[in-house]
Simulated scan of single mutants.
Amino acid sequence: MFTALAIIAAVLVYAVIVYNGLVKSRQMVEEAWSGIDVQLKRRADLIPNLIETVKGYAAHEKSTLEEVITLRNKAQAVPAGDVAGRAQAEGMLGQALGKLFALAEAYPDLKANQGFLDLQASLETLEGEIQMSRRYYNGAARDLNVKVESFPSNLVSRNFGFTKASYFEITNEADRAVPSVKF
Score class of each variant (00 low, 15 high):
residue 106 A to N: 12
residue 87 A to K: 10
residue 124 E to R: 14
residue 116 F to M: 06
residue 181 V to P: 08
residue 168 F to H: 08
residue 35 G to T: 08
residue 52 E to L: 03
residue 104 A to V: 05
residue 115 G to M: 06
residue 176 R to C: 02
residue 182 K to R: 12
residue 140 A to I: 00
residue 84 A to L: 07
residue 111 K to A: 13
residue 56 G to C: 11
residue 131 Q to S: 15
residue 69 I to Q: 10
residue 70 T to L: 04
residue 3 T to M: 12
residue 85 G to W: 02
residue 119 L to K: 04
residue 117 L to Q: 15
residue 157 S to I: 05
residue 151 F to Y: 14
residue 10 A to G: 14
residue 45 D to I: 06
residue 86 R to Y: 06
residue 31 E to P: 02
residue 163 T to K: 13
residue 102 A to E: 12
residue 9 A to I: 13
residue 82 D to Q: 07
residue 146 V to Q: 10
residue 71 L to F: 02
residue 16 V to N: 07
residue 159 N to M: 14
residue 94 G to I: 01
residue 169 E to L: 09
residue 71 L to M: 05
residue 83 V to W: 09
residue 21 G to Q: 07
residue 125 T to M: 07
residue 90 E to S: 10
residue 108 P to R: 01
residue 147 K to F: 02
residue 97 L to Q: 00
residue 108 P to C: 11
residue 164 K to F: 00
residue 182 K to E: 14
residue 25 S to R: 12
residue 89 A to N: 00
residue 155 L to H: 04
residue 111 K to Q: 15
residue 37 D to R: 05
residue 116 F to S: 04
residue 18 V to K: 08
residue 83 V to P: 05
residue 83 V to R: 03
residue 100 L to G: 06
residue 142 R to D: 15
residue 83 V to K: 02
residue 55 K to H: 03
residue 53 T to R: 04
residue 103 L to A: 08
residue 120 Q to R: 13
residue 3 T to E: 15
residue 92 M to E: 15
residue 124 E to G: 13
residue 38 V to C: 05
residue 32 A to I: 03
residue 86 R to L: 07
residue 118 D to E: 14
residue 143 D to S: 11
residue 131 Q to H: 12
residue 50 L to S: 01
residue 145 N to A: 00
residue 89 A to W: 07
residue 129 E to F: 11
residue 122 S to A: 15
residue 164 K to S: 12
residue 58 A to L: 11
residue 89 A to D: 03
residue 99 K to Y: 06
residue 70 T to N: 10
residue 154 N to D: 10
residue 45 D to F: 05
residue 139 G to N: 14
residue 93 L to Y: 10
residue 170 I to E: 09
residue 159 N to Q: 14
residue 83 V to F: 03
residue 71 L to N: 01
residue 163 T to D: 13
residue 179 P to Y: 07
residue 72 R to H: 02
residue 132 M to V: 11
residue 48 P to C: 03
residue 5 L to C: 08
residue 77 A to T: 06
residue 117 L to N: 12
residue 13 V to F: 15
residue 103 L to M: 12
